[in-house]
Design a binder for these strands. Structure first.
Lengths: 113, 113
DNA sequence: TGCATATATGAAGATATAGTCATATACTCA
DNA sequence: TGAGTATATGACTATATCTTCATATATGCA
């Protein structure tokens, strides 16, 4: 990262921003291992149809997901395995943090007794 | 990621959002391998003092950086190696993408001649 | 060809956020 | 103790963004 230009960091910001929203993260969770249609993603995320469409446009623009059309259906999928690796790395890190925070809290509570 | 709750994804969003801004990425680039004072970070990033202070507060709140005080100086550093791993992974991915896009463009231009 | 379904887009409103300016706070030192 | 320096914070403005509602577009099928 130290060698990256400001322009490249701007692209990194766009990329990260595309995933830095709870609704879009739910979309990516739904798409984690397989492609799905807009309707399926709606069901799994609970997002409204037009809201979902806008978020999918953002993720597509950032090359996080891509799509193919089949009749009236549009099938979305994670754009490439790199994205999945990044998502898994970040999510594991945060999940570990939360778990560790809970453990610490329990230990503090135990010490009080 | 598939097993994560909505609450955890909300935390992931906060974490990603904290880094999804060009100014904060410049801060993280400055801090990549070593701790630095606010003044040093100002010099390296070009950010205004109060703007920098606010961004450092966001990064601290998201546990991306942490600090120690030494007299009037506040020394900031990346909070833990996990953060560096994530940053490097994401930056490498985007840099590769940009490099690949440039290569493709050159090949297209060669074919036109 | 018209209806039904799936999806994309424009407009509007509410909320979030980045940067600047001014000021407050903390610390050091002569 | 006051001046100087480093840093944090409040207030304000402009811009970005999320969600909803209404509507447009694309496709398939009877």
């Amino acid at each position: 990262m130290k060698t990256l230009s400001n322009e490249t960091l701007d692209q990194v910001a766009v990329f990260l921003k595309s995933m830095a929203e709870p609704t879009r993260l739910r979309i990516l969770r739904a798409l984690h291992d397989e492609e799905k249609t807009v309707s399926q993603i709606m069901e799994e995320t609970g997002a409204g149809q037009s809201n979902l469409s806008k978020h999918l446009a953002i993720l597509t623009g950032a090359h996080v997901v891509r799509f193919r059309k089949n009749g009236t259906f549009t099938h979305y999928r994670i754009a490439d395995p790199n994205i999945t690796v990044i998502l898994d790395t970040v999510c594991r890190s945060i999940a570990d943090r939360i778990r560790q925070a809970r453990t610490t809290l329990k230990e503090i509570e135990r010490e009080r007794r």
